[in-house]
Design a protein around this nucleic acid. Structure first.
Lengths: 361, 361
DNA sequence: CCCACTACCGTAAACGTTTACAGAGATCGT
DNA sequence: ACGATCTCTGTAAACGTTTACGGTAGTGGG
């Protein structure tokens, strides 16, 4: 592991100057004889270019950072799964940051762009604060934000449309004949919580259904909460016939409680989740879920960033990814399970068909 | 986004030399007056250290790479979730590689260590070839391998013990009174497939159960395969009363088929998976699964690497992580579900309690 | 035979840091 | 009052590349 060879070592051995070595290694026009000598020397020495020195001179690191709130969140992982190959194909390495949704950490990542250890950044903040906006305006490298930023923010931006997503789900439940549709939401002071709550109200109004405070249950975004919240709800509104859950974990908790209470899903109560994670396809009954296109958003973000890294300036762009409803048994029923699911690998979505190719030892 | 300030800019502005600037920024002893001037200048200019130049001089990048076979595999993600915070706490960034289990890609990653863009590497190869071993011997930076390498390979190594894992599961099934225990395995030419198959045979022998070829079904590691394989198995051996599945996906496929065939789980057939992924806790009935300690292995690997990055030379170490059986309803029955699961957040494992804190917009 | 041109190559500067070394003042003991 | 010692600072080299620039040798034309 002694100090590796540099272009100086090669130059010496090949009897040429370091400039020639560099030219050969970069494929610039050079006499055949020189090329041969340099290549031979490089081979013999097992030379590998020093990426750091290269970056210093070229001001390009060929690295891109992805900052996610929570590395345990399947939605972010879905993004990651799409981002990685896009960057790899373009010759960029991926540097991962998990900020645990701590604002200071996110600001820190933004700040560290000044260190120039990456050429660009994809970030998916949970909340967008004033501090975020300031740092974004001053960012020393291109940034793409996954999630909504205020109008007028000069930054590339990939959005989900959870409003339409909720709408899709509520309409679906309505078409199935449900009229007492409850919402189990997360905290209203988060961006997703607020958006989904508002969308639920809107959707009901458009369908001519009355809005009933009793039908709204607020908790957090965990499964345990799903259980507690739904238990409360059932006690309060026994005639509820559908649950719109603000994410898949809550919905899984709901399934647990409904089962324990002897309510059939979907005959008595239909359940819809959000995010369409792997868990939705894996549960029993499989969970109808609104995909907010995490995978697509990741892909779009990566492509936006590459575009900006390649091209010069252009106006910031906003890409909105449409939601999609993955209908499964928790609304469509067991018949669906037996016929549709039995024919397909994953229960009807494409989200987990890459999962677990093989396992290590 | 104009060219940012360097220590030269600061030196000029503060009226001192770049050496002094560097000293101040690194906290080396300096006169108070100078410190003040430099700090002021740095603040006004919004100076941020250039990480690349720093790395070039110090020969340290404060980056570590993690190369996984498949970014979609929950087992690797579990490793990643543990590796990331350990590295972050030690001030290292994480560079992610997904090799798709292509040997050439893995060799490539190993080779690229010579580029010195990272200080070390954690790698989890699916198969370990001659080429791997050669590159490992010649590696230009510390490497930790997750997975087994041949005896005598001079490299830090973190192993699972799938042999004991299978043993745990089979013993558990035996204690539950099962005597016709089948094995649904993946390809025998993979390291995990071979190890698990052999372990199954051994476990039966030790329990005094006869080995029956009919009870072994080979497929791949996907859920679809799980369905097909188990359907075949049921047709061939109707009196089977337990399934030992080589991973969770296969086991989920098994649950699908058993349900469709009207067999009760676990009353008629008990089912065990392996890897103890999030899916195991999410399914219904929840799946008993053998954890091979992906999370622990990730953590151990990160710690081994840090140790080597900090300390000088030491003999390569081998760490073996013991397996653990997570008993859930697919063997312990509905009683378990109602009592145990209802009390706990996640259905009895600790693998998904960090999942999906909140969701983006 | 000289000039212009081409093709190739070497010298040296630059990227932005860190750090060894030595010089300049200040302080101290005698 | 003078050298010794100490504290602080600046100069310059180094890390390993890329690349602008100029030089040299060879070729062909006039």
């Amino acid at each position: 592991m002694a100090d590796g060879p540099t272009i100086n070592t090669i130059a010496e051995r090949a009897g040429v100057s370091i400039a020639s070595v560099s030219r050969v290694l970069n494929g610039l026009p050079t006499r055949q004889e020189t090329v041969r000598k340099v290549m031979a020397a490089a081979d013999e020495l097992g030379y590998v270019r020093n990426a750091v020195a290269r970056s210093l001179k070229s001001r390009r690191t060929h690295q891109v950072a992805f900052a996610m709130a929570d590395i345990g969140n399947p939605a972010y992982l879905a993004m990651l799964r799409e981002i990685q190959p896009v960057l790899k194909a373009a010759g960029y390495r991926l540097v991962l940051h998990s900020t645990d949704a701590v604002v200071a950490d996110e600001i820190d990542v933004l700040h560290s762009l000044g260190e120039r250890y990456v050429d660009g950044l994809i970030m998916s903040p949970l909340r967008v604060t004033e501090a975020h906006l300031e740092m974004l305006a001053a960012a020393r490298a291109p940034v793409v934000i996954i999630g909504s930023v205020p109008e007028g923010t000069r930054v590339d931006n990939v959005r989900a449309d959870s409003r339409t997503g909720v709408r899709l789900a509520v309409d679906h439940l309505y078409e199935l004949g449900r009229r007492r549709i409850a919402m189990v939401n997360g905290p209203l002071d988060t961006v997703p919580g607020a958006a989904r709550g508002a969308a639920y109200r809107e959707a009901l109004a458009d369908l001519g259904l009355p809005y009933d405070d009793d039908l709204v249950q607020i908790g957090d975004f965990y499964r345990r909460q799903g259980r507690g919240a739904v238990a409360d709800l059932l006690a309060r509104v026994p005639d509820v016939d559908a649950l719109m859950c603000a994410n898949d974990l809550i919905a899984l908790g709901a399934l647990d409680v409904l089962r324990a209470a002897g309510r059939r899903v979907p005959e008595d109560v239909a359940v819809v989740g959000m995010d369409d994670t792997d868990l939705a396809a894996a549960s029993w009954p499989s969970l109808t879920s609104v995909s907010l296109g995490s995978a697509e958003r990741g892909k779009a973000a990566a492509e936006l960033l590459l575009e900006r890294l390649r091209g010069g300036d252009r106006e910031p762009r906003v890409v909105t990814v449409p939601p999609r409803l993955s209908v499964r048994a928790s609304t469509a029923g067991a018949e669906y399970e037996r016929t549709y699911r039995a024919r397909t690998e994953t229960g009807g979505t494409r989200t987990d068909n890459k999962a677990s190719k093989e396992n290590e030892e």
